[in-house]
Simulated assay, not measured.
Amino acid sequence: MTMTVDYYLAPMSPWTYLGHQRFVQIAKAAGATVRVMPMDLGKVFPISGGLPLGKRAPQRQAYRLVELTRFSQRLNLPLNLHPKFFPVAGDPSAKLIIAVDMHHGTDAALAITGAVLAAVWHQERDIADAATLGTLLAEHKLDAACLALSNTPEVQARYDSYTQSAIDTHVFGAPTFMVEGEMFWGQDRLDFVAQKLKD
């Protein structure tokens, strides 16, 4: 039986960045179907008890940097702890991912997701800037028309739908992987996702 994974992500999340490529490899190895579902954390957090980074207690902010360093080193993934363009609005890139998914399909959506995440956390690029997003499309040989598509009511409706789905499913952070109704929150839970996909 082919399993489906609902992949709730935020394109400006360092934790999504740290787990993305591993998740793609795990899903591919398992032959799983992936639904790429960018969500608006600005709407999810208030309902789920989460706080934007700047409003978290200092000790939580400090420990976040410790953990990011640990995982970056463990996974051998370059990560700027204080990227030039962060905090950054996630909506433009989230909607671009959706547009690519609609136009090119899941594999392309996963590829542009990886590109967007690396742009923030490794390459010091502004993912809220339309020119940057257009360049990312070109670098991955994806249709430039996806940028215009990302600004359509159809894409906005799907983005809103994914965000509402996250809220209804009790998602509270990114990345979250829903496999056959079971929730796995965080890139550090990917071993459990892999096991679930083997069951």
Results as ranks from 00 to 15, higher is better:
residue 91 D to W: 05
residue 13 S to Y: 12
residue 123 Q to F: 15
residue 8 Y to E: 01
residue 134 G to M: 00
residue 70 R to T: 14
residue 55 K to R: 09
residue 120 V to K: 06
residue 131 A to T: 13
residue 7 Y to P: 02
residue 40 D to T: 06
residue 104 H to C: 11
residue 157 A to L: 11
residue 50 G to A: 10
residue 104 H to D: 03
residue 67 E to M: 06
residue 102 M to N: 11
residue 76 N to R: 13
residue 174 A to Q: 09
residue 28 K to T: 15
residue 150 S to N: 01
residue 142 L to H: 00
residue 190 L to N: 04
residue 53 L to C: 01
residue 146 C to I: 02
residue 188 D to T: 10
residue 195 Q to V: 15
residue 122 H to N: 12
residue 25 Q to P: 03
residue 153 P to I: 14
residue 149 L to D: 04
residue 199 D to I: 11
residue 13 S to N: 07
residue 24 V to I: 08
residue 154 E to Q: 14
residue 105 G to C: 13
residue 145 A to G: 07
residue 83 P to Q: 11
residue 25 Q to D: 15
residue 38 P to V: 09
residue 174 A to C: 14
residue 12 M to C: 04
residue 46 P to F: 03
residue 12 M to I: 14
residue 110 L to P: 10
residue 99 A to G: 03
residue 118 A to W: 01
residue 77 L to S: 13
residue 147 L to I: 01
residue 129 D to W: 08
residue 65 L to P: 06
residue 23 F to C: 02
residue 155 V to H: 00
residue 184 F to L: 05
residue 192 F to I: 09
residue 193 V to H: 01
residue 52 P to S: 05
residue 29 A to H: 12
residue 100 V to E: 00
residue 15 W to M: 07
residue 87 P to Q: 10
residue 52 P to K: 07
residue 16 T to Y: 02
residue 184 F to K: 05
residue 186 G to E: 02
residue 189 R to D: 07
residue 133 L to D: 00
residue 170 H to T: 14
residue 180 E to W: 08
residue 175 P to D: 15
residue 89 A to M: 06
residue 125 R to T: 10
residue 83 P to C: 04
residue 129 D to V: 04
residue 1 M to V: 07
residue 153 P to K: 12
residue 57 A to C: 04
residue 177 F to T: 04
residue 121 W to E: 10
residue 38 P to A: 04
residue 176 T to R: 03
residue 151 N to F: 02
residue 131 A to I: 12
residue 18 L to V: 09
residue 36 V to Q: 05
residue 44 V to Y: 03
residue 130 A to C: 04
residue 135 T to A: 02
